[in-house]
C-alpha cells in the first residue's frame, strides 16, 4: 500500500508528470492544452488522496493517473474553447506545434484520429496490456483490439514505403 499523502509533490511530479503529459499531448497535440490537462490531473490526485483513498501499489497508482489523464483529456477536447482553437488551427490562424521536427512515425501517429492515438500510445509507449488498456479506457477487450487493429491499418497506410513491424 502506498502512503499517498506522504509522497511529496516533488517526487510524484518527478515520477509521473512526463507520463501524464505525454498522454495529454497525444490527445491535444498542443503544449499549453497538455499542460492544462496535466495540472488538472495532479490536482485531482491531491483531492483523491486527501479524501483518504489509497493505491495498492505503484502500478495501481500509475493506472489511476493514466485513467484520469484520458478522462480529463476526453472532457477537454469536447469543450467549446478547444474546438474553436482546433478550427483556427485548421485555417492556419494558430500555429500548431513544430511539426517539422517530428519523426516520420510520430508524425504518422499524430495524423490518425484522436481515438486511435490514445490506444496506440498506451499500447506502444506505456507498454500496457490490452486488459490494462480496457480498464483505463473503460472499454471492452474487443473494442480495444478493434481500435488497435484499425490504428495499425491507418499507420501502415501512412507509413507506406517504410517497412515497419507492428
Amino acid at each position: 500500500m502506498i502512503a499517498n499523502e506522504s509522497m511529496s509533490a516533488e517526487a510524484l511530479i518527478e515520477k509521473y508528470s512526463d507520463t501524464v503529459y505525454r498522454v495529454a499531448f497525444s490527445r491535444t497535440q498542443n503544449v499549453s492544452d497538455a499542460q492544462d490537462i496535466t495540472q488538472e490531473v495532479f490536482l485531482k490526485y491531491i483531492k483523491y488522496t486527501k479524501a483518504g483513498n489509497t493505491f495498492r501499489d505503484e502500478e495501481h497508482q500509475k493506472a489511476w493517473l493514466l485513467k484520469v489523464a484520458v478522462n480529463t483529456g476526453n472532457t477537454f477536447v469536447t469543450t467549446a474553447w478547444f474546438r474553436h482553437r482546433a478550427s483556427l488551427e485548421e485555417v492556419g490562424e494558430v500555429a500548431a506545434e513544430t511539426k517539422e521536427d517530428w519523426s516520420e512515425v510520430f508524425d504518422a501517429v499524430m495524423d490518425i484520429p484522436e481515438k486511435y492515438r490514445v490506444v496506440v500510445h498506451l499500447f506502444y509507449y506505456e507498454e500496457l496490456s490490452i486488459k490494462q488498456i480496457c480498464n483505463i479506457l473503460n472499454m471492452s477487450e474487443t473494442a480495444v483490439k478493434s481500435r488497435l487493429h484499425r490504428a495499425r491499418e491507418l499507420l501502415r497506410e501512412k507509413l507506406k514505403g517504410a517497412e515497419y513491424e507492428f
Partner: peptide
C-alpha cells in the same frame, strides 16, 4: 514501430518550469 515511436515520443516532456509550478 514500437522502438521508433518510443524514441520519438520520449522527447515529449513537460517543461521544467511547468513542473515547478505544478509542485
Amino acid at each position: 514501430f514500437k522502438d521508433e515511436y518510443q524514441k520519438s515520443f520520449s522527447e515529449i516532456k513537460a517543461d521544467e518550469n511547468f513542473k515547478k509550478y505544478l509542485v
